[in-house]
Every structure is written in C-alpha cells, then in structure tokens.
Design a protein around this nucleic acid. Structure first.
Lengths: 342, 342
DNA sequence: TCCGATTATTAAAACGTTATAAATTACCCC
DNA sequence: GGGGTAATTTATAACGTTTTAATAATCGGA
C-alpha cells in the first residue's frame, strides 16, 4: 500500500489525475491544459486535440471542489421537497424525472426538506447565503410565494412547480388543475350527477385556486349542486377526511359525485361509499387525479385523470438548465396537460 | 440608492464572511481563527471565545468548497435510489427519514439513480473515483452485492438497506422479512387457509431469500399447500402480475390465502379476487406488507404488516454517521421489526 | 533582414480552507 | 534577571482550478 504522510482523506490520494498529470504528460503547462479542455479558441487546435486525448487516456475528471472554489459555481441543483403531496408516489416520480435529465450534465441533485407549514424561506436563505447550489427546484408553490420573491430579488435561477400571482414572469411548470377540475365536473354531469363534492388543498397554494375555479365554474355552468368540504384539506390526516366524507354521506343530501385531487382522497371517498352502504356507479361516481397506475387494480374501477410527474420533473430540470444558461424567464413556462382515462 | 464612487468598502460588507473577515476583526491571524473555530486546545480558551463570538456576529459559515478542497472531505452523503421498490411511497418515506437525521449535521444528501437491472457498480465507481461523497446509502441489496464488495475493498463508509451473504461484516439496516413471511403464513393458517400463494421479488436480492425461507418453512410446518408465482416478480409490470394471479384463480386449485410483499401486489391480488367473483374473507384472505396507511381506506380491509421506512432511513443515516466517525462495522446492524395490524 | 502584429503559450495569483513547522510570548524556577 | 520550558500564535504551503497579464513563437510585409 502507498503511504500517505499528508494525513489527508484516504480514498482521495490514489493517484487521481489532475491537470498537472496531463500537463507533465503532454509537456504543456497547467494553464494551457485547462484552457485546452475548455476548448478555448486561443489554444491551437492541435494542442486541444493532444490534451483531449491525454485527458481521455488518464480518465481525467475535473475536481469539483477546486472548480467550485475558483468559479463559485457549485454544480449542484437543490430540490426543496415538500413533506406532503397529493400522491404517494410524487417524490419518486418527480425525482426520477429530474435525475434523468441531470444525468450526464455534471450536476448533482441534493434534496432539502421543505415543510409547507413551517418556514419555507429558511432553506432558501441557507442555500443562497452559503452558496450551496446553482439552481433551485421546488413544489407546492403559493400564490405569493415568499421563496419566489426572494429568489427573484437575488436573481437566482429556479423553477417552481406551480404558478404564482406575481406580475414579473418566472420559470414554472404546472399541471392544468383548472382543466382537470372542469373536465372532472363535466364528466360527472354527463354521467347524470347533480350534487358533487370536492376536497381542496390548503388555501395558500396557487393550484388550490385553479382547482376551485375550474370546479365552481363548471358546476355553476351545469347548474348543479356542489360543495367544498370544510374544515379539512387534502393534507389533513386521512381519518379526518374520512370522518368528514362519511358524515356527509350520512347527512340529508349526500353527494352523488366526487372530484378527488389525489389518490388517497379517492380511496377515502371510495371507502366512505362502501362504509355507508352506497354503491359506486349507482349512488355516486368518482373522478380522481392520479399519478400512478394503482387504480387499475382497485375495485370498483373509478375514472381517473393522469398527471405525469416524471415528465414534470424532466421539464423542470430542463428549464432550470436553460435558465442557468442565462435564458430569460419570459418564455420558460410549461403546462402539463391532464390525461383522462375516460 | 447610494452610489459608490470610491469603489471600496460598501458591498464588501455584504460579501460572505470568511476566516479573514473574522481574523481582521479580532486581530488574530487566519490560522488562529481556523484553529479556534475547530476548538483546538492549543488555542487559549479566551481566544476561542472571542473568535467564536465574532464568527457568530458575522454569521460565518465555512465555505464547503474550500474545506473540501483542502481536506478531501465532501460533506456529502449519496443515496443510490433504486428505480423500483415494493412500495409507492418508499422514496418519500425513506428520504424523509434520512434528511431528518442529516438536518443540522452539515451533510447534504445527493440522490443518484440506481437501476437494479443495469450496471449497479457504475454510479459507485463514479462516486469513488471522483470523490463525490463521504458516505453511501443504498437499497435493494443483493446476496453478493458487487457494490458491497467494492466499497469494502475501498474502505469507503456505507450502509446497505438489506444484508448480504459476505462473511466480512458491514453496516446494514434490514427489515425482518423472514419474520414477516412467517407471521403472515401463520396468520393465514390460523384463519383456516390451506393453500397459500406468494409473489417474490427478483432472486438476486437477499431479502427474497429471507421471504422465501420464512414462507416455505412456515407453510411446511403447518403442512399446507403453497405456491410461489413463476415467471413474474414483484417488479414485473402490474398487468403481468394481474394476469398470473387471475389465471391461477381460474385454475383447478385457486389459493385461499395470499402473502403480499408490497402494496401494489396486494391491490392486484384483491382485484384478482374481485374479477373472478371470489369474496375476500370467504374465498381467500390476504396479508400484505405495507409502508403507508392507504389500506385503512381500501375495502375490503385486509390484514397488513407495517414496515417503517422512515425509521429505516433514520437508522441508516445515523449508522452511516457513526461509520464515518470511524466506528467499526462489527456492531453496526439494525433489524427493523414487522408491526402487524392483527 | 528585421519589425510589428498576430497567434500560442505560460507564470502567477487567487478562491478559502487546514496542517505543518516555526516563531513568539508567557511562565516558572533558581 | 537569566535560562529553559510550556503555552500561544502565526507564516507558509498546499489542495486543483481558472483567469489575467505577460511572454514567446510565428508570420507577413516592407
């Protein structure tokens, strides 16, 4: 074994090639090698070729720490991951999309927890202050999201999952929740349903407004009765949601249609039907937003609308890369469309 | 608002504080400040206090890049996240546990995709070679996992989710799948079931062996009939699993009990019952491993056994920290116990 | 043949930290 | 007060990059 008098980290010192390795091997200086690898046109084409070949031969990979120290760029993208989401598989699908795009770009993804009930600004501040990332992705965006405000002020690249109501444009990827809600209501109406119910996410999230608007306008246009569950949100403990939905079923005018914004809520609604002796398809119908294929295996089969979270992750990562390249925010928007199964 | 004709000071104040900032402010040298902050006993206690106060005042946070360049330690923990898991919420729960423990330690978590069907060694090699992390966590461990072999050879800190069959000890956290399978079978037997069925994960994973052993030994001890589905694994496309289970139900001797290792498989089994006109609780029973509360809202309610993935993530992160501190691997093992709902 | 202008290369500094070795100061005892 | 030792502090040299400014090489053109 090679002795290491330096006392510096054990697994590093196994002859990792550096610029100097290539420099001494090719006879050029470290500076030239660095610029050659950056494809600087000031460096003769022949030299660039020689250096590139040597780098290839040695399996040279630039040291991130050194580059980061020198340039201030971290090669890191941070994901603020909300503790709650409307789908069980949200994190997995989303992260899969992001890492798919980032694979091979040299960026790595760090995950930072984001508690929508807590201080959402704290992790952002830490990242900005300590220069922990070059770009930021986050979910569960609020209408006047403080993170968006702060990041825009700091001119720090980010893409939000969900829009805001700020006037200045910023990059976002969003699911068309208004269209989803509208389609869901219309579908229920087409099935003859006249009294539909909805459980919304917390009021502060922008997508809650979109859902509400789509739901209300379609219900009013159809002239049917509707209600939005009170005292609970999509993120409430499921027993609480179950209690409210079951109570409503036992009340005077139980709904005959449910628009469910998440998978779990849809299961709760189904359970409420079963537990109150109601028959799906007879006494009530359900349209649910889904992000996974689990409903294929749930009986009775309900109508679903697919939200492609993997594609969402991909779109956000791609957009962030473009933003970090300096592309202006004005056109960096992408709406993910609902895919109904009906 | 205020112009800066001098070109000197003002914006410097808003710059990130470094050791030099504190050094000039306190009158000590950079070296002293560095050592004082490291609580070096060679530095006078009074000096340490002074320096600590100044650091506090400036909101000093050491620059990760500089420290990393100098020490070779990255302050990063990488998570190799398998593309498939037996639970929809696996990623979320697991990641939540990990980030909970790592919050405040100064370590950040990067997520790297790991495709169990592809080259599982490639991401590990990249991390080792390019010194991208100080420690590694991964899931879906194989009996003779090449990653474990490589990491042990390189003496690189890691914790695997799942055991291996290597003789040398390495840190692991595992769920007692053997106990789960055994309990599940015994429970079905106690309910009077005499012909039980199981879908296993891929053969190479260690936990597959544990499941098989628990299942087989309990079934044989009880003297009942059993079968393990062939041609499919837990990770097969759900339509494939559904096809096999449904075909079995239509065959000569359909099972009257199912041990389901994942939530989706349990749903498939339930659907297979429903689709073949069988009645849960009458024609067959199910015991399923679960990681989320969704089954509380699925009707009929089946018997479940809880695997606490958040606790698993916590345990793995804690263990990795201890391992990185130099603790020997010998006792770094933790078995997560099944929590039956029955 | 030599000069000015490109073109190609490189020396040196810097990013912020830590570790080594050396320098300084404080302290104690005679 | 001096000599020696212990207690503190600090200068300096890295770590591997990139970048600025400067040097060296090449090339026409007069």
């Amino acid at each position: 074994m090679i002795d290491d008098p330096s006392g510096i980290a054990p697994h590093v010192q196994s002859e990792r090639p550096t610029l100097r390795t290539i420099a001494t091997a090719t006879g050029f200086s470290v500076a030239t090698v660095s610029r050659a690898l950056a494809d600087d046109p000031q460096i003769a084409a022949k030299t660039r070729a020689t250096v590139a070949a040597a780098a290839q031969r040695f399996g040279y990979v630039p040291d991130r720490a050194a580059r980061r120290l020198r340039t201030g760029r971290t090669q890191v993208i941070s994901l603020l991951l909300a503790t709650e989401h409307e789908f069980l598989g949200f994190t997995h699908e989303f992260l899969t999309g992001i890492t798919q795009v980032l694979a091979g770009t040299g960026y790595s993804v760090t995950v930072v927890p984001d508690s929508p009930d807590g201080d959402r600004l704290a992790p952002v501040r830490t990242i900005l202050r300590n220069n922990l990332a070059d770009g930021l992705l986050f979910t569960r965006t609020e209408a006047f999201d403080p993170r968006v405000r702060l990041l825009m002020e700091a001119d720090f690249p980010f893409v939000s999952h969900g829009r805001t109501e700020f006037t200045a444009p910023h990059p976002w990827v969003d699911f068309d929740n208004e269209a989803f809600a509208r389609n869901a209501v219309e579908h229920l109406v087409a099935k003859g349903r006249r009294r539909i119910s909805l459980v919304l996410p917390g009021d502060k999230f922008t997508f809650t407004q979109h859902l509400r608007y789509g739901f209300l306008s379609a219900a009013r246009a159809a002239g049917i009765a509707y209600d939005i569950a009170e005292g609970i949100t999509l993120d409430s403990p499921t027993p609480d949601i179950a209690a409210v939905l079951t109570a409503a079923r036992r009340g005077p005018n139980p709904p005959d249609g449910y628009v469910c914004v998440g998978e779990v809520t849809a299961l709760v609604a189904l359970a409420a039907l079963a537990d109150t002796g109601a028959l799906y398809g007879v006494d009530a119908d359900i349209v649910a937003k889904r992000a996974s294929p689990i409903f294929d295996n749930i009986r009775p089969q309900i109508d679903t609308v697919f939200e492609d979270l993997r594609e969402t992750g991909r779109a956000m990562a791609e957009m962030l890369l473009r933003r970090m390249e300096g592309e202006p925010a004005d056109d960096l928007h992408r709406m993910i469309l609902p895919v109904p199964s009906f």
